[in-house]
Design a protein around this nucleic acid. Structure first.
Lengths: 203, 203
DNA sequence: ACCGTCAATTGACATTGTCAACTGTTACGT
DNA sequence: ACGTAACAGTTGACAATGTCAATTGACGGT
């Protein structure tokens, strides 16, 4: 067995390794993800991951991108399945799906936004995945803006929306927000405040 | 030299090690903080940190607490030095000092809120440091609430305030928010939205 | 003067990321 | 048909790191 791999084959094996890595991640936490354990879990030999990823950080980049894709799918599905079709309701549904994903997959969510060294730039592919994700909420915001009921352009609101939810999820996942009740309350309050701040006062 | 150390001595050496650790952290990033490098930087021998901390995670807990203390001092100082004494202005000043600290000390800030394993509870001392920190903004909020100009109780607003700022800082420190201009814009927008959502509409 | 206590150092080991050398197989030119 | 080059995949080796265990050495009370 040693012919040049087709691009499809390479993609397939990369995907397999990344999926395996995510499983390990969710089972054993960030520290539980080891290149050697990953190789074992994937049924390949110690050094095999190096054939498909430059180094560990390159693997983790791929994990981040795959995680973002799942996150995007989850929020998109929630919006599509929702009965409501007003954009405000769509935003609410998208936001809640986002939060739910963050809480249901704490380790993966943390990995997506994992601290990188300062001055280390995000890869183009990761940036694309981020943009795709943000478009889920950007679309209804754009529609709302065109109807003239938002106080500021959708791109700007989207940043605020994203940052707020991200902060809430992060604090919660670190156990810093307290019990479920407090968290639910804070989420509600955030929704109220965002809605009040988002919408022109007449709505 | 080998008599039982006084509690003061122990505290002093712990503080020295923690200060050294923070310096290493800010110089070399999270991965650059190694127990062995810390020992060398502190001029002690390899295993000495183990005399004052149970293990690395125990040391990092102390770093988190010390970092939170510095953060609290920075925001408190900003509020005290501020010319303005209206609570709304105090909140703005406190928030901006909080954000500035987060941006000026990205590695330390990240360490403060560093991912812990799921189900791992925060220590009592860390919780105290968190409470002290949150009291900086809780005080003016309480005053504002008693004047009847807030839409909800101060504890709840404080959570929203905290989560939003934290999310903004985190995203910025991971390079996910873009250039300085975009960040400044988002910070302004967040302030607008929070203020609009915080305050009863008549103010 | 002796001995226990305790701070502090050094030795040792498992884990991990990673490089380098090695093995074996496949395609292709002659 | 054969050898050779290219390439997938494996194993050996090493440095860095966290951490435990054994050792050393000083101080104070008896």
């Amino acid at each position: 067995m040693s012919k040049p791999l087709s691009d499809d084959e390479i993609d397939h094996r990369r995907s397999t390794l990344v999926a395996c890595a995510i499983t390990l991640l969710e089972e054993n936490g960030v520290d539980g993800l080891t290149l050697r354990k990953l190789a074992e879990a994937a049924g390949v030999s110690r050094q095999t991951p190096y054939l498909y990823f430059k180094d560990k950080s390159d693997l983790l980049d791929a994990v981040r991108i795959a995680g973002l894709t799942r996150l995007t799918q989850a929020t998109t599905a929630a919006v599509n399945q929702s009965e409501h079709d007003g954009y405000i309701e769509q935003l609410r549904v998208a936001g809640e799906a986002y939060v739910r994903f963050g809480l249901d997959h704490p380790t993966l969510y943390r990995m997506i936004y994992k601290p990188t060294k300062p001055e280390e730039t995000v890869s183009a592919e990761l940036q694309r995945a981020l943009d795709t994700n943000s478009s889920v909420t950007a679309a209804p915001m754009k529609a709302a803006f065109e109807d003239g009921i938002l106080v500021m352009p959708p791109e700007r609101l989207n940043q605020v929306f994203w940052a707020s939810l991200h902060g809430l999820i992060s604090l919660r996942n670190e156990g810093l927000i307290g019990d479920d009740e407090t968290f639910g309350q804070t989420l509600e309050d955030l929704e109220i405040i965002l809605a009040t701040g988002f919408l022109k006062s007449s709505h």
